[in-house]
Amino acid sequence: MKPEPKLVRGTPLDEKALKRGKTFSVTYEPRLRYGWDTGQAISRYLAELKEGRLIARSCRKCERVMIPPRMFCERCFRPTDEWVYVKDTGKIFTFSLCYVSWDVRRLKQPEIPAVIEIDGASPGMGILHVVKKIAPGKVRIGMAVRAVWRPKAKRIGSVTDIAYWQPIKN
């Protein structure tokens, strides 16, 4: 009979092993820089953001008004047809209360990332952004929100030209 094969191998390192100095590691910090061209659709999107407007693209075939805008419809696989201004209001499609920053710091006050379904675009067409000026416990799916724009002089043609979204008070 052949011996039972050893199926599980490997050497876990714990804090003690690391402190004992028996292990070696080499560190490297990549210093790469990129300049991403923003393309036809998103260049226009960013230019409009700088003017304090949201713009979408429509496809005549599937009748969708799409945001973020794109030069081709991924469903019909044909060119999109027209630029369509949409509103800077929308509804919270989904959200989270996030207590961890992008670099894994703990936050006392949570960030509120959300997908905002944009008014004037097709149903379900949302963009990723953040919600502020509301108690975290009060945020709900379906809540109406509006974009709060940075002052015109401070806009740079970025999604961050919208500082955040806040609930529309009735």
Binding site: P68, T94, S96, V100, P113, V159, T160
Partner: peptide, 23 residues
């Protein structure tokens, strides 16, 4: 995350899962 339309918001991986779980 999309390098032009999403990364400037400084997202983290938890966002995407939390947003889907909420939905």
């Amino acid at each position: 995350f999309d390098h032009i339309t999403e990364q400037p918001l400084k997202p983290n991986l938890l966002w995407i899962f939390a947003l889907e779980q909420t939905r």
